[in-house]
Write a protein that binds this DNA or RNA. Structure first.
Lengths: 346, 346
DNA sequence: TCATTCATTGAAAACGTTTTCTCCTTTGAT
DNA sequence: ATCAAAGGAGAAAACGTTTTCAATGAATGA
């Protein structure tokens, strides 16, 4: 069973290749009789159209790309399902691609665009400063999901669309929640990335909370994860928390900018013989499933991933059909109070 | 910046298209002078070769495909990184594709093979009974990773290669571990899938443990997750455990065939006001990262994902270069004793 | 000097589709 | 009965590459 092409199918069913093509693509102008005959042959021979040849000719492929930076991050998992079904509902095909930690997502995006005939592209994660430049060459609408950092061109106009929560604001809220519980020495675990990274934005929110209270931020309580690995991993939360504990600083709460970090933090605290939340309160950010099942349950900011996902594809289709220009859509996060935080006792 | 093709490049640099092609693909037989000239034009025009056209002609693409069934499952995450780097080390490209819960992985595989010029394919997850049939049409070597269920053709020969632990054996081991702790009424949470599913295999191992002890298996202690969602999710573990607790059966231990299920189980037990492991011991299977950070830490069977991943690509390359025929490689699992299990007190 | 080889190059033939044109039947209306 | 319109189907021209083949000229060896 070597390769069987459209020509073979045409020959066997005794029609022209164009007819076969019409059948495959569900064009109307082919008689029921012929269609059936061709369909039978296709079935029987197990013919599958060659996508490369197809894409080469096609100009109207209804296909949209989803690019995930760090497929390893379970944060994106629930989004994929929704985005997939939403795109499907519009009768578009979806092609999912991932960019490894080393790859520049812009490169992968460009490659994808040129390989497939995409009508639009969705970015999950990524969106770093540098890749933004390259994205200028993108000829199709792009939406960044979950990445709020506004991307502006030189004139201050939005160059891409984004759908997300206001990372900075929400981070402030949860920090304020900790403050309201009486916590003063609140450590934060974040990443040391560019100005537009979620880690940075959430750190800003943390600082905002102090600014509003007219309290100085103690820079010694800002801890950065190690650079050499997946930033927002459980293990990184664990290790960084060990560093916090070893630092001897008098800390009553830790704000982890990610739920995964928080899970690791809680384990590290327990391993040090301390209790969460009695000795140290811990909170996260994201509202991942694991936080609802951890012990203790995690206090966190929940992102409405459902709505974000749905709005992402809606917005993308608006752009594709040019019903709107680039927009930044912001959803409110929700403070989920778990059992990992409590009143400061000291 | 609309589309600029190889023909344009050729015209501008005043050479033939074949020469441009040779430059792009780094063939040797082109003079340094010409090469430089062409390269300059390429750079200047920002020309990017069209991958579809390329794949259409190309026959020797060094590319291997990785197909993940259920990208949503964090179990695969650590494997991807390793597989990726191993493939890279061989100077092959990798294309990652995922099959949703509704899609037949065989269909996606066939589509992928025909779309790209793959030299081999790796399956992560999936491998259901029915898709096996279709896989007959696959013209390239395939390796199932993490899926031990031997796939034999009518003559009893291996039709595909697999790399995995012995699910049945390891499941027996951990069940025996529970028995040795004095547990008698051990419930199991598994999935109701085909004979070759991991859920089924691990259930068999569970039964084996009883058989060896010459004890009957109490079918009422076998619980199946709900069908309508991702089988091995935390939530499913939670819900199924609620059913177990509501059943009023006198249970002292639960064997969850997956760590994720176990995480959910532990939460459900805690929510019912019981303690793990004092009231009910819980163990999982897989050795996922989360189990090492959960509270309590999870007793489980750890799969050597590193070795499995590495061996998977090694085996695939053996097949590609026909250094060997299909094989089934089995790695031993390791019993990780956490704090989620203890002696049966009753 | 002439015949051979070798290194470069270009022309043209694939690759497997989709699409545009054109042509041949029908059909329906006058 | 005649003609226009429409419906159904095939031939052939793209699509943007890679690759084979042949041609060119230069360089080598006798």
């Amino acid at each position: 069973m070597s390769k069987i092409t459209i020509v073979d199918v045409a020959r066997i069913s005794g029609v022209g290749v164009s007819t076969v093509s019409r059948v495959i693509n569900g064009h109307v102008d082919v008689s029921a009789k012929t269609r059936e005959k061709v369909l039978a042959v296709i079935n029987e021979t197990g013919y599958v159209p060659n996508d490369s040849a197809r894409n080469l000719k096609r100009t109207d492929a209804k296909c949209i790309g989803v690019l995930i930076k760090g497929i390893t991050n379970p944060f994106f998992s629930p989004m994929i399902d929704i985005i997939e079904s939403e795109i499907d509902r519009q009768n578009y095909a979806l092609v999912l691609r991932h960019a490894g930690p080393e790859e520049d997502e812009a490169d992968v995006a460009l490659e994808l665009e040129n390989e497939k005939r995409l009508r639009g592209i969705i970015f999950l994660g990524g969106g770093s400063e540098q890749s933004k430049e390259k994205l200028r060459d993108l000829k199709i609408p792009a939406v960044f999901s979950t990445i709020g950092a506004t991307i502006l061109d030189r004139d201050g106009n939005a160059e891409y669309s984004t759908v997300s929560v206001d990372d900075r604001l929400e981070a402030r809220h949860i920090t304020q929640y900790l403050m309201n519980l009486g916590h003063k020495n609140i450590a934060i675990i974040t990443e040391a990335m560019g100005r537009r990274s979620v880690g940075h934005l959430r750190l800003e929110g943390y600082k905002d909370a102090f600014a509003i209270k007219r309290q100085p931020v103690n820079d010694e309580l800002v801890f950065y994860v190690e650079q050499n690995m997946e930033h927002f991993s459980i293990e990184n939360g664990y290790r960084t928390t060990q560093r916090i504990l070893a630092s001897g600083k008098d800390i009553t709460a830790i704000f982890c900018v990610t739920d995964l970090l928080a899970i690791g933090a809680m384990r590290a605290i327990a391993d040090a013989g301390l209790r969460v939340p009695e000795d140290i309160s811990v909170c996260g950010f994201d509202g991942m499933e694991i936080g609802r099942y951890s012990n203790p349950r995690l206090t966190t900011i929940s992102q409405p991933l459902d709505q974000i996902s749905r709005e992402t594809v809606k917005l993308l289709f608006d752009l594709i059909e040019s019903r709107s220009s680039h927009r930044h859509i912001v959803f409110p996060g929700e403070l989920i109070i778990g059992e990992s935080t409590m009143k400061c006792l000291t």
